[in-house]
Design a binder for these strands. Structure first.
Ligand code: SF4
Length: 302
DNA sequence: AAAACGGGGGT
DNA sequence: ACCCCAGTTTT
C-alpha cells in the first residue's frame, strides 16, 4: 500500500520542522500562511521570531498592524500579514476566540484558500482531508495518473488523494506526500532510485518501459505555475512597492513620511520614477491596506 | 482565465 | 541575469 509505505518513510526520513511538533491551530495557521509561495528554510527563523513577538492569537489580533508588517520583512507577499491579523480578529470577534476546525469555515477566513484551509484542518486537528500544494500535486500526478494522458484536473486529483488516506492517518499521509514532493519527487530531477514508492509509480514505470525500448522519455514535468514577467525586476511595480514598505518599516514609531520625501528616498536607492507613477503605486498600496494616507502623509497602518 | 503579489539564494 | 520556490485575491 502506497500510503503506508509513504508514512513509514516519512517517520524515518522526514525533516523535523517546528510546525510538525505542534497541533496548536494558531501556530499551524502562522506556519501555513508563511509557507505560501515561500521556502521552508526562509520560514523557519521568521516563524520563531513571529511567535516570540505574537505568542497567541489575541496578541496578534490586538497588535499594531505596522508591527506585523514589520515582522513580515523578508517573507514577501505582505498582504499575507494583513490577512493573518484579519483572521485573528475574525476568530476573536466572530467565533468567540475558538479557532474553527471545519474546512468550509476555515476557507472563509481571509487569506485561507483551498490549500491552507485543508492544511489547518489536517495539521492542527488531524482530520483526514485531502488538499494539494504544488508538491502534493506533482507527486499525485506522477504516482496515479497515466503518463500518456493529459494531466487530470485538480478536483480529480484531490478525489484520488482522498481515496488513499488511511483512516485516522491524514496528518501523517499529507505530511509524508508533501515531504516526498519537497525532497525526492522534485520538479525537474526526481530522485526515483531513492524513492520509497517507485515500485508503484506510474510515471517511473512509464519511463523505465520507454528505456527498454531505447526510446527514453523525460520525467513528467508539470507546467510552470506562472510565467515570469519579461520586465526586469528592478524598476518594476513590485520593486517600488517593496522599497516603499521597507522604508516605512524603519521609520521610528511608525511615524511615516511626507510622500515627496518618501519619493525622494526611494529614488535615492538608485531607480528613478516619476512622481505621478509613484503616486499611483502608493494609491494601490493604500487600497491594499498596506499603507495609510492622510493628505500627503504616508505610513504603515497602526 | 489572467494578472498581481516579494524576496532570498543558487546557478 | 535568470531560475526556483508549502497559493490567494483581485480584475
Ligand atoms: S518514483 Fe520518481 S516520479 Fe515516482 S513518485 Fe517516486 S520520485 Fe516521484
Amino acid at each position: 500500500m502506497i500510503a503506508t509505505t509513504l508514512i513509514q518513510w516519512f517517520s524515518a526520513a522526514g525533516r523535523v520542522l517546528p510546525w510538525r511538533q505542534t497541533r496548536d491551530p494558531y501556530r499551524i495557521l502562522v506556519s501555513e500562511v508563511m509557507l505560501q509561495q515561500t521556502q521552508v528554510e526562509r520560514v523557519v527563523p521568521k516563524y520563531h521570531a513571529f511567535l516570540a513577538q505574537f505568542p497567541d492569537i489575541d496578541t496578534l489580533a490586538d497588535a499594531p498592524t505596522s508591527a506585523i508588517i514589520t515582522a513580515w520583512q523578508g517573507l514577501g507577499y505582505n498582504r499575507r500579514a494583513l490577512y493573518l491579523q484579519k483572521t485573528a480578529q475574525t476568530v476573536r470577534d466572530q467565533y468567540a476566540g475558538v479557532f474553527p476546525r471545519d474546512v468550509a469555515v476555515l476557507r472563509t477566513l481571509p487569506g485561507l484558500g483551498p490549500y491552507t484551509a485543508g492544511a489547518i484542518a489536517c495539521f492542527a486537528y488531524e482530520q483526514d482531508v485531502a488538499f494539494m500544494d504544488v508538491n502534493i500535486r506533482r507527486v499525485a500526478v506522477r504516482l496515479w495518473s497515466d503518463p500518456q494522458a493529459t494531466i487530470p484536473a485538480d478536483q480529480a486529483l484531490v478525489t484520488t488523494l482522498a481515496t488513499h488516506i488511511p483512516a485516522g492517518q491524514g496528518w501523517a499521509f499529507n505530511q509524508a506526500i508533501m515531504e516526498l514532493g519537497a525532497t525526492i519527487c522534485i520538479a525537474k530531477t526526481p530522485q526515483c532510485p531513492r524513492c520509497p514508492v517507485r515500485a508503484a509509480c506510474a510515471d517511473y514505470a512509464g519511463r523505465r518501459a520507454a528505456d527498454e525500448q531505447l526510446q527514453p522519455i523525460p520525467v513528467r514535468v508539470l507546467k510552470k505555475v506562472a510565467e515570469k514577467p519579461a520586465q526586469p525586476f528592478i524598476g518594476s511595480n513590485r520593486y517600488f512597492r517593496g522599497r516603499i514598505i521597507d522604508l516605512l518599516r524603519v521609520v521610528p514609531g511608525n511615524g511615516g513620511m511626507h510622500q515627496s520625501a518618501l519619493h525622494a528616498a526611494v529614488v535615492a536607492l538608485g531607480e528613478p520614477i516619476e512622481p505621478a507613477a509613484f503616486d499611483s503605486i502608493v494609491t494601490k498600496l493604500a487600497s491594499d491596506g498596506l499603507v495609510v494616507r492622510d493628505g500627503e502623509h504616508v505610513q504603515l497602518p497602526q
